[in-house]
């Protein structure tokens, strides 16, 4: 299958071709690839997609998956409405 038809993140519209473009530019960490493609920035915050990125980094650079650092996990773990946060303040 063509790399630009393999969807890694449907929300941020990131394809396998986007991931490989970063690897070919010389970026080899999850944090780099996240910023260049927005993978991991969507509603799942990386839970559904980052393992694929790790796989690709591992294959491209011949490094063990366990040696690849995952990305920093940002709050929030669930999506919270603004009004709930405002009311919590009161």
């Amino acid at each position: 299958m063509e790399k630009n038809k393999i969807i890694i993140c449907p929300y941020e519209e990131v394809t396998m071709a986007d991931i490989h473009k970063c690897l070919e530019m010389g970026f080899t960490t999850v944090e780099d690839i996240k910023r260049l493609t927005r993978v991991g920035m969507g509603p799942c915050q990386g839970r559904d997609c980052i393992h694929i990125v790790v796989d690709e980094i591992s294959k491209f650079n011949h490094i063990k998956k366990s040696d690849i650092e995952l990305m920093h996990i940002r709050p929030n773990l669930a999506n919270i409405p603004l009004k709930a946060l405002m009311e919590h303040k009161k």
Binding site: M41, G42, N76, P81, L82, K83, M86, K89
Partner: peptide, 21 residues
């Protein structure tokens, strides 16, 4: 909490929009 209060004060219809990150 602080930013939600400030923003909803001036843009009150955004209350149901969810924070993602």
């Amino acid at each position: 909490e602080s930013i939600s209060s400030k923003v909803l004060n001036i843009l009150p219809t955004l209350g149901d929009v969810k924070v993602q990150r």
